[in-house]
Design a protein around this nucleic acid. Sequence first.
DNA 1: CTTCTGACA
DNA 2: TGTCAGGA
Length: 167
Amino acid sequence: MNSAKKNIENILNTDRFMFRIGELSQMTGVSARQLRYWEKKGYIQSEAREDGQRARVYSFKSFVKVSLIKEFLDQGFTLPAAVDKMTEQGKRMSELHQLYHNAYHGLGFYEDQLWVNMGYFDDEKTKILLAHVGDDDDVHYRVMPEEEVAEKLEKIGPETLPGPPMP
DNA sequence: CTTCTGACA
DNA sequence: TGTCAGGA
């Protein structure tokens, strides 16, 4: 596996990101005191620590949640209201993610272009729909037999996207 | 050095 | 919410 492919997979794989409370605090501008309080209230949660450690560990999803709450707080909403807004926006993000997840089946190079594998084009599942953004900023499509894709498309990214940013 | 819980001049 | 104590 080449390094470019590894890099892309690492960037996309948010599931493995883990932050300690001090890190999350600096990243979001929310104090550690607030993070602990929000957790006690059930607004956010830290990962269960199975390694016997007492220090909290937060996932990328928690980072997204905290960022959203912080945003709404800065807009003047009360904490409970900000949490509600965060939950609502999280649902929209999940719906969008489902769309991306269904449309994305990998990345690859072909004819000096970066293509997105968008999955089967036909119900018989013999042809693949590919798309790329041209220099004109327009999206161009191409339908190609699955076997041809397998031999001509130089894969560089993961086959699937990581889990949704919100539970 | 960082994090944790409990408490409050 | 901030901050300090007293441990882990």
